[in-house]
């Protein structure tokens, strides 16, 4: 779905960020255009999740330098809720359980916040129920989960489906899905992946953060980036993911050793 006239949705330049005074991102550069699917791979601790949290505006992460622009707007000044409303979606690696807060109510309030931004009318309880029932089909989720508290007692697979359901309701321009495939069995992975595929639009883009190539068998990325030590060190196409699956991350160590030697 990439075309030469595609607009840039997300543009990250030389991003340095820290958590608890420890610098994790050491200069990330990334440009994502409409219609594109990007995969970011890398070891634990390479900075993938940090990058996703920084984009979403998590208050524990501090941006030290660099910029993040969303459709030409500097988002670093925006609160997390403002970022979400203009169309940035973060699919959590570990969706948070919130006892006592009804999932249905949560989904409705979130959807209406986004609709307000898009100058669409807010949905009342009945209208929203119609919408959510239709969107449930995308992730083949049991409506019973709407009646429960947000993510409380959900299995790993159910939590991830609930994340994709939120994506389906919020219709973001960019979705950053942090290890959406972790903890899923083969069937659940297919359902979640097919949901993501169905939700991708010519005017939206997706960033998949993953450890494994198996998700990329279901969702074909246009670009594959490899992160190490808080930077994107290599970018390629789907083949890169396949190579990585075969040879592992050892080449990273080799590269960094060579760099050390060159110094």
């Amino acid at each position: 779905m990439i075309s030469s006239t595609s607009e840039t949705i997300l543009s990250i330049e030389d991003l340095h960020a820290s958590v608890e005074d420890q610098e994790i991102l050491h200069g990330v550069n990334l440009v994502v255009k409409e219609g594109e699917i990007h995969a970011i791979m890398g070891r634990n601790g390479s900075g993938k999740s940090t990058l996703s949290k920084v984009i979403a505006g998590h208050p524990s992460y501090k941006v030290l330098s660099g910029s993040i622009q969303f459709k030409g707007i500097d988002i670093l000044e925006l609160e997390p809720e403002e970022r979400a409303r203009i169309g940035i979606f973060l699919g959590f690696q570990y969706p948070v359980e919130i006892p006592g807060v009804s999932n249905l109510e949560f989904l409705r309030v979130a959807t209406n916040s986004r609709r307000k931004e898009l100058l669409k009318s807010e949905l009342d309880t009945f209208e929203f129920e119609d919408l959510v029932k239709e969107r449930l089909k995308i992730v083949e989720m049991d409506p019973a989960f709407l009646e429960r508290s947000v993510n409380e007692g959900f299995s790993g697979g159910e939590k991830k489906r609930n994340e994709i359901l939120q994506m389906a309701l919020l219709e973001p321009f960019i979705s950053i899905l942090d290890e959406t495939d972790s903890g899923l069995d083969i069937d659940a992975l297919r359902i979640v992946a097919s949901g993501i595929n169905r939700l991708s639009q010519p005017n939206s883009a997706t960033i998949l953060i993953t450890h494994y190539q198996r998700l990329l068998n279901e969702i074909t990325p246009d670009f594959v980036h490899i992160m190490a030590d808080g930077k994107i060190i290599k970018t390629g196409n789907k083949e890169l993911a396949i190579d990585l699956e075969k040879s592992g991350y050892d080449f990273i160590d080799k590269n960094s050793k060579e760099k050390e030697m060159a110094k």
């Binding site: 809720e81 109510e105 916040s113």
Partner: peptide, 17 residues
């Protein structure tokens, strides 16, 4: 943060919690 990241404003998120 989970609620904020879904576009729900701070006051509303606190009241939901």
């Amino acid at each position: 943060f989970y609620l904020l990241s879904r576009g729900i404003d701070n006051k509303h998120a606190n009241s939901l919690l």
